[in-house]
Lab assay of single mutants.
Amino acid sequence: MDLSALRVEEVQNVINAMQKILECPICLELIKEPVSTKCDHIFCKFCMLKLLNQKKGPSQCPLCKNDITKRSLQESTRFSQLVEELLKIICAFQLDTGLE
């Protein structure tokens, strides 16, 4: 393996790690329209609304089981920016390397 191939692999590993961190624990995809709970867990807005609409009253956070309500959800613009920038990095990496 030459040096450039090694560096490509390192970049790919970093991108994969970042994708894992920014993954919704419910749908296991890159978070879309991130919302945070009072317990500071981040999920896709759609995933949380789907969870909350399944029953009346408070639901439980899928990660820590604390009570959550629609009102307690906060849009997470910082995470939204992180996801947007990661998508740009992924696109640039794919253009530069031809890898997916």
Rank of each mutant, 00 (worst) to 15 (best):
D2N: 08
D2A: 11
D2P: 07
L3I: 15
S4F: 03
A5G: 14
R7L: 09
R7P: 14
E9K: 08
E10D: 05
Q12E: 07
Q12R: 09
Q12K: 06
V14A: 10
N16Y: 04
N16P: 01
M18P: 00
M18K: 00
M18V: 03
K20I: 08
I21L: 08
I21V: 13
E23G: 14
C24R: 00
P25R: 11
I26P: 00
L28R: 15
E29A: 11
L30S: 09
L30M: 15
I31V: 08
I31S: 03
V35I: 12
C39Y: 02
D40V: 05
D40H: 09
D40Y: 04
H41L: 01
I42R: 13
I42L: 05
I42V: 08
K45E: 09
K45R: 08
K45P: 02
F46P: 05
F46C: 07
F46Y: 13
C47Y: 01
M48R: 01
M48V: 04
M48K: 02
L49V: 09
K50I: 04
L52V: 07
N53P: 15
K55N: 13
K55T: 11
K55R: 14
K56R: 11
G57V: 09
P58L: 13
Q60E: 12
C64P: 01
C64R: 00
C64Y: 01
D67G: 12
D67P: 08
I68K: 00
K70E: 15
K70T: 15
K70I: 14
R71G: 15
R71M: 14
S72R: 07
Q74E: 09
Q74P: 14
Q74H: 11
Q74R: 15
E75D: 07
E75K: 03
S76I: 02
S76T: 04
S76C: 03
S76G: 05
T77S: 09
T77M: 15
F79I: 02
S80P: 03
S80R: 05
Q81K: 08
L82R: 00
L82I: 06
L82H: 02
L82F: 12
V83L: 09
V83P: 02
V83F: 03
E84A: 15
L86I: 04
L87S: 09
L87F: 09
C91R: 15
F93I: 08
L95H: 15
D96H: 03
D96E: 00
D96A: 01
E100G: 15
E100A: 12
E100P: 05
